[in-house]
Design a protein around this nucleic acid. Structure first.
Lengths: 95, 95
DNA sequence: AATATTTGGTTTATATTATAAACTAATTTA
DNA sequence: TAAATTAGTTTATAATATAAACCAAATATT
């Protein structure tokens, strides 16, 4: 019953957790916005978004705003579930 | 004001966090006990205890119980501070 | 009494991660 | 038209987590 639950390694990462935290409270967010909010470098963010996307935790769509490429992200249902579970498991560690 | 606080990388690790979580609620704990509670392998635990110890977050004393070696750990004041700060910073991500 | 096993670890090697640096391609701006 | 900016991706490197291999002493087995 007691003991420490396994923390989803995909979410137990500062940057990916920040991304998910941000996305869970908005409908969608653009790459540049996420970059600014999290303070991440573009390279790192690009890599971490890929991982979240590959896991099905977020969906990423590429389009154009005028002539500029825009990468838009939103959290998926699976992502929300995973985030909530992670948070619950984490509570076992910190309260 | 807003934005995501930096999470102490020493604490943002599943095993080290579990160790700290455990130690913060007891006076002291022995290696074997921590190993059982966290489900860690001895090797991994040994490494992570070293890191926490080197950071001054825990103190580690080696002695003998009868003829068997015993490694006893307890959290330090610095460790308590760091843990509390980590938890507060983390709240910015999960609530 | 020798040998095998268990206990309580540490050290070392490896796989995974996080991160930054370098790069690409198109677009403004000077 | 050259320089700088934007919006990213790819690649290289440093840091981490983890397990496997090892060690010494104690205890149990035959």
């Amino acid at each position: 019953m007691s003991g420490f639950a396994q923390l989803d390694p995909l979410l137990h990462s500062q940057l990916r957790l920040a991304v998910m935290s941000l996305l869970i409270s908005v409908d969608s967010a653009e790459f540049v916005f996420i970059k600014e909010k999290t303070g991440a470098t573009a390279g790192n963010l690009s890599v971490q978004l890929d991982k979240l996307s590959n896991a099905g935790y977020i969906s990423v769509t590429k389009s154009f705003k005028g002539k500029k490429p825009v990468t838009t992200c939103s959290i998926t249902k699976v992502g929300i579930k995973a985030f909530e579970k992670y948070v619950n498991n984490l509570r076992g560690y910190i309260e």
